Simulated scan of single mutants.
Amino acid sequence: MTYYTSMEEHPIEILNLPSLEERVKANLDRGAFGYIRGGSEDEWTLRENTRAFDDLQIIPRVLQGLSGADLSTSIFGIPLKTPVIEAPSAAHGLAHVKGEVDTAIGTAMAGSLFSLSTYGSTDLTEVAAAAPGAPQFFQLYMSKDDGFNAFLVNKAVKAGVKAIILTVDSTLGGYREEDVRNHFQFPLPMPNLAAYSSQDGAGKGIAEIYAAAKQDFVPSDIEKIKALSGLPVLVKGIQSPED
């Protein structure tokens, strides 16, 4: 079955995120929209995370003698124009034919930092070339195959990424009811998988793809990736204070 992704190229006026979501829903394949928007099970965690974020408040300071706000900051010595960075997410090609290339370009134009997922729709070398000089991180889903891990990390280092994001909380795919309802499987290949083997992710659900991922994480895995890359390693997915 052929999957048709958007090829539109034009400016859009964004009023707010909820209204943008409704516009996307009306113009995107149902299964793709469900995967991008949805969460696991009955989406309790998704709702709670949103609610918890809404509870955070920015308290303005007055009488400080300031005539303009400066949002610039830095991370690992990398200067950024904004404290908001782009988190890694899979398969941008579901939404647009240029996939992560356009996301990386837009992020660079905003003076922010782009993070590419192992399960992206675009090869990491191509993403790096799309925004030369702009800072990028690479998010690694460790595989049971150490050869695959070394291959991807070395390729990311050669592409010039500034850090590795190591995801440790996705050892199994969540039970995504929206995907089950829509019988969703990834319609597009994942080049970062295909570059190493014939397994490119197309025609599989997220649970099948995660089945090849490492489950038995230990702290030494962080050291392994740090030694392999020579870069800072951010551990993504820590939820318990004990951890």
Rank of each mutant, 00 (worst) to 15 (best):
E177Y: 14
V153I: 12
K144N: 15
R176Y: 12
T171G: 15
A150C: 01
S143M: 03
D146Q: 05
V157F: 03
E178W: 13
Y175D: 15
L172D: 09
R181V: 09
T171H: 13
L152D: 02
I164H: 03
G173C: 07
L166H: 05
T167A: 06
V153Q: 09
V157D: 06
K155A: 06
V161I: 15
E178M: 08
V157T: 00
F148I: 01
V157W: 08
D169W: 15
V161K: 10
E177T: 14
A159V: 04
G160E: 01
A163T: 08
I165W: 11
V161F: 15
A159T: 05
A150G: 10
V168A: 07
N149L: 08
S143P: 06
A156N: 00
K155N: 10
T167Y: 14
M142G: 08
I164G: 00
E177Q: 14
S170E: 13
A156G: 08
D169N: 14
A156Y: 06
L152T: 01
E177L: 15
G160S: 06
E178L: 13
V153M: 11
A159K: 00
L152A: 02
T171E: 11
E178Q: 12
V161S: 05
K155G: 15
A156T: 04
E178I: 11
N154Q: 14
G147V: 02
D146S: 04
V153N: 06
Y141E: 03
I164Q: 01
A159M: 09
N154M: 00
N154H: 09
A159S: 11
L172G: 12
V180H: 13
V161H: 08
K155D: 04
D146P: 10
K162L: 05
F151M: 03
M142I: 02
N154R: 05
L152I: 04
K162C: 05
A163S: 01
I164P: 10
R176H: 13
V157Y: 05
T167D: 06
T167K: 06
Y175I: 12
V157H: 02
L166C: 00
A156D: 05
L152M: 07
D179T: 07
K144P: 15
K162T: 02
Y141N: 11
F148N: 00
A150K: 07
K162F: 11
L166Q: 08
V180I: 12
S170W: 09
